[in-house]
């Protein structure tokens, strides 16, 4: 069976989860030379409401672009965690925000409670980069994209002038991941 990795990044509209999904897909497809799809689901609201981005990375063709057998679920809100955990496979990685998605549902998963938003706000200095902190953790814990590919994809995608901030968020995420894995 060729390599296939399915991720769902969930939270609420405005948290930059679709951007994080795009960056992961670009890292895999452009810099790691694999196939990747990113698809999204959101409500009719401009801000708020449960939102998710799904990324599939594969060495083969990707037909159905929706995740059905998740290797990894990121949840930044309790609502998203409750709504989107059903497809996480046994032994899958659950990364839940320690403050905002603290009630972990029953499941046979590898669970990590991480203060993504708190870290972005208090350590990196801007809550808005919680998505990139999470991306660093995902890269480290999943191994689905290379660290270098993710770094290049972030730099190619974030607004000019925010590169340093985002790199700081990314490195902070990698360090958290390293600590968790250790």
């Amino acid at each position: 069976m060729s390599f296939r990795y399915e991720m769902r990044l969930s939270g609420e509209g405005g948290q930059g989860l679709v951007l994080a999904g795009k960056i992961l897909a670009e890292a895999a497809a452009i810099y790691d030379d694999r196939n990747a799809t990113q698809s999204q689901s959101y409500g009719p609201e401009a801000r708020g409401g449960a939102s998710k981005s799904e990324v599939i990375i594969s060495d083969g063709e990707i037909d159905f672009p929706k995740a059905e057998n998740l290797d990894l679920l990121l949840a930044l809100t309790q609502e998203a965690l409750d709504k989107y955990n059903s497809d996480l496979k046994v032994g899958g990685l659950l990364l839940a925000d320690a403050e905002n998605a603290a009630r972990i549902p029953e499941g046979d998963w590898r669970v990590y409670k991480i203060p993504f938003i708190g870290t972005a706000r208090d350590k990196v200095g801007r809550a808005i980069v919680a998505n990139i902190v999470a991306l660093g953790v995902i890269v480290k814990l999943s191994g689905a994209v290379s660290e270098k590919a993710a770094e290049e994809a972030i730099l190619a995608r974030v607004p000019r002038g925010t590169e340093e901030l985002n790199m700081e968020a990314y490195r902070t995420g990698l360090a958290i991941g390293e600590e968790m894995a250790g």
Binding site: N35, Q38, S39, K66
Partner: peptide, 9 residues
């Protein structure tokens, strides 16, 4: 909607 919003290589 799926084709319009799904991103691919």
């Amino acid at each position: 909607e799926i084709l319009g919003h799904t991103e691919e290589k």
